[in-house]
Nucleic acid binder design. Sequence first.
RNA 1: GACCCCAUCGUCUAGCUUGGCCCAGGACACCGGCCUUUCACGCCGAGAACGCGGGUUCGAAUCCCGCUGGGGUCGCCA
Length: 472
Amino acid sequence: MTVVTRYAPSPTGALHIGGARTALFNWAFARHLGGQFLLRIEDTDRERSTLESEKLVLEALSWIGLDWDPVPGFAGIPRQSERGARYREAIGVLLANGAAYRCTCSEAEVEAMRARAKEKGEKPRYDRSCRERGIGADSAKPFCLRLRVPDVGGITRWNDLISGPAGEDVRELDDFVIARTDGTPIYHFAVVVDDHDMGITHVVRGREHMTSTPRQLLIYQGLGWEPPLFAHVPLLIEAGGKKLSKRQDSVSVQSYRDRGFSPETVLNYIARLGWSHGDLEIFSQAELVDLFTLDGVGSSPSQVHDDKLFWLSQHYIKTLPRERLLAHLQRFLDAEAGRPVPVDDGLASLVELLRERSKTLLEMAQLARFYYVDALARDAKATAKFLKSEIAAPLRELRDALASVPSWDRASLEAAFQTVIERHGLQLGALAQPVRVAITGGTVSPPIFETLEVLGRDRSLARLTEALALVH
RNA sequence: GACCCCAUCGUCUAGCUUGGCCCAGGACACCGGCCUUUCACGCCGAGAACGCGGGUUCGAAUCCCGCUGGGGUCGCCA
């Protein structure tokens, strides 16, 4: 049997990391087994769904490296908003076989019922008053459709692929609405029809859907369909312990990207949130496909915490192939400079030197600033501390020595420094720091010789001269 | 409130199915040290957890019960 999974976002905002992780698990699970991974847009809530959100979500998914398969029988990605006729058809089946009935209770009435139940210390629910009234399609009052939940028959059960045996007594369920007064289906109903029509074999989704599984099972039953297998993934929670909210921009995939994390980093990070494979920490996309199984998924919720994220980020910055790193970096370079920054050999070499010094792409672009910026802004504190009058003479001598160095390479630069520090009885650091401030504007950079080498003779000399004027 | 779920270092987790190899392993973070022209990287080292209480057993992180704590769900939202 071919495994078919799906991710079904509702396009009501950016994709957050929890959604991305659910998508990843579905994707990796399917790919590992050589199956299909499908996408579906759940936009039955017309008020909140937008095309921009949809685009954002799709973009985020491909950004972390997920791809999806075409859905047989559908042109493009299925969207619930376009499946009205199919839902009506399925509703007709339920009505015909008595699994659903019409209810004319108003919202106010239902609310009152719930309040009453709550007072009695019961679960708030609909009291089934329309159940046996046999209301027809010709009813004068507007009606919605409710599922007739069997009142005998005990417990709905399924073997959750992550939680193990699960189920709920049907007496806990009320006759829930499956179609609104306007005839449009409610989520639970649409999901069942969609999953069935798309041939989904495994539903891998967040734990928050656990309690609605019995209801969906009942719908499958009413329709006479075989339900898929379910796997409920533990929730992702924020540092405070609460469920990640959809409205939190800080955890959107987009914002991780903007903070300078590579897609490799984000993918690896979310993979390890709730899933593990022994002691391994680093996983490429291919390794994930290779190793991902549902029994690697834990059963308790995980906090989203930045510590490991930074470590992973630097790991990938250190190890990514140059081309890929530069491709990731480009947008940060451009943003920092406020114009397109061409990556020449010097900048490429600088990036190599910066790999071990940058935790994020953003940080890397900032550290490289001195290279691609026209007018260097020198840090005031650093200037005050290192460009002092006593360094004027050595600095001037160094500049002159550098000006006449035979070739601009590490060895020659080092020789020039050596001569100056020996004459003045200085430690290398005593001269290197002022030079660093002179040519980079700050106290932090790659080793001084490499930095000079990368900057080139003309610019280095010019900046040294500039700095000499600032000596006080 | 009702129902459901969860519970190992600060964080992510291994171990739990098939009790002993676990006075609990790895990783991140933190702290200390080494290296060092700044910052990093790297290397070495330290501290740090089985929520509590009962069982069962020769033996429990692992099995059972209770408690506590945390979370999720109870919509004509998805």
